[in-house]
């Protein structure tokens, strides 16, 4: 994806090139418009939204909707704003990402450098588990979380996200480590280095790019998850569930500006991660999964 690789560009005339730019810009508009509308309208007072044009900039700029969405909007029955739910999401996402990435790394290491009979079957089972529709596990999961006493809690959600995230992280690390020369690992073994020393000293130091991919992937998935949060969140609902409660509540006046501010608040962490590290993510993802 960088300048080093050549494009397959063909020679084209001036009119064609203008057309190409036009199409590309139109699509850029298509992708930007809904988000632009949200941002602009989150900064307007409510009467300007219901009476005015969604495309126009605010006549009176206000951050009141943002403050309201953050700390005083009605979520369900409590006027708490989104703040406590934002915290829930953070408390859930950090351990879930850390644990699933750690497990994925060590699994990938075993599955490529310490192969054994049947390892391909295990990998196949893990791989398929990435793609299952989660409806198939909802009923027993509800029962088990209750039996373990972690239903409706942050640890419960962390467990769920680790279990259904480890397939993807293993896939990433396995594909990445598969390209790492096994001779180096053999040489270290002959020198007497053990399982963990080889992992720490030889493989982990070169795992930067794939760790970025794994962390971003897991962070985005766990933060954006709605199904598990809504099913098992209980008293510790994550941000997406709270946002849906805010937006679809049927009582009182619909405060669209507050809804938009809330939606952007919910999107902010993943957007930030994406803006800061998105280019590495796409690069690593393509190297890992498409060309495999």
């Amino acid at each position: 994806m960088s300048g080093a690789t050549q494009s397959t560009a063909v020679s084209t005339g001036r009119i064609t090139r203008t057309l190409i730019y036009l199409v590309l810009l139109l699509f850029a508009l298509f992708y930007l418009l809904p988000f632009f509308v949200m941002v602009v309208n989150s900064l307007k007072p409510l009467d300007e939204i219901t009476g005015g044009n969604m495309m126009s900039l605010p006549q009176t700029w206000t951050i009141q909707p943002w403050l309201q969405a953050w700390s005083s909007a009605q979520i369900g029955v409590e006027p708490t704003g989104l703040r406590p739910y934002f915290l829930n999401s953070l408390l859930m996402v950090v351990p879930a990402v850390a644990i699933s990435t750690g497990l994925g790394a060590i699994n990938g290491y075993v599955l490529t450098k310490w192969r054994f009979r049947g390892d391909n079957i295990i990998f196949g089972l893990l791989l398929f588990s990435c793609f299952i529709p989660f409806q198939i596990v909802l009923i027993p999961m509800a029962t088990i979380l209750g039996k373990l006493g972690i239903a409706g809690s942050i640890p419960g959600l962390v467990l769920v996200h680790v279990v259904y995230g480890v397939g993807f992280t293993t896939l990433y690390y396995r594909n990445y480590y598969a390209a790492f020369p096994t001779e180096l690992v053999r040489a270290a073994m002959i020198d007497g280095a053990g399982f963990f020393r080889i992992f720490w000293r030889i493989l982990l130091p070169v795992s930067g790019p794939i760790t970025v991919v794994s962390v971003i992937w897991q962070f985005t998935n766990v933060w954006n998850d709605f199904l598990f949060g809504a099913s098992f969140g209980g008293q510790s609902q994550p941000m997406t569930v709270a946002l849906n409660n805010l937006v679809s509540s049927s009582t009182g006046v619909k405060e669209y500006n507050v809804h938009f501010a809330g939606a952007i608040l919910a999107a902010l962490p993943t957007l930030l991660v994406y803006i800061v590290a998105g280019r590495y993510f796409v690069r690593g993802l393509m190297a890992g999964s498409v060309k495999g």
């Binding site: 699509f27 850029a28 992708y31 930007l32 418009l33 809904p34 988000f35 509308v37 949200m38 969604m54 985005t220 933060w223 954006n224 998850d225 709605f226 997406t240 946002l243 849906n244 937006v247 669209y256 809804h259 938009f260 939606a263 952007i264 919910a266 999107a267 993943t270 957007l271 991660v273 994406y274 803006i275 998105g278 280019r279 796409v282």
Partner: peptide, 21 residues
């Protein structure tokens, strides 16, 4: 990045934006 950024959003956020739009 302009083409790609929507994939960073939650479907709940996308739904909120488009429901209104």
């Amino acid at each position: 990045p302009i083409y790609l950024y929507p994939m960073a959003l939650s479907f709940i956020v996308t739904g909120t934006a488009w429901k209104w739009f």
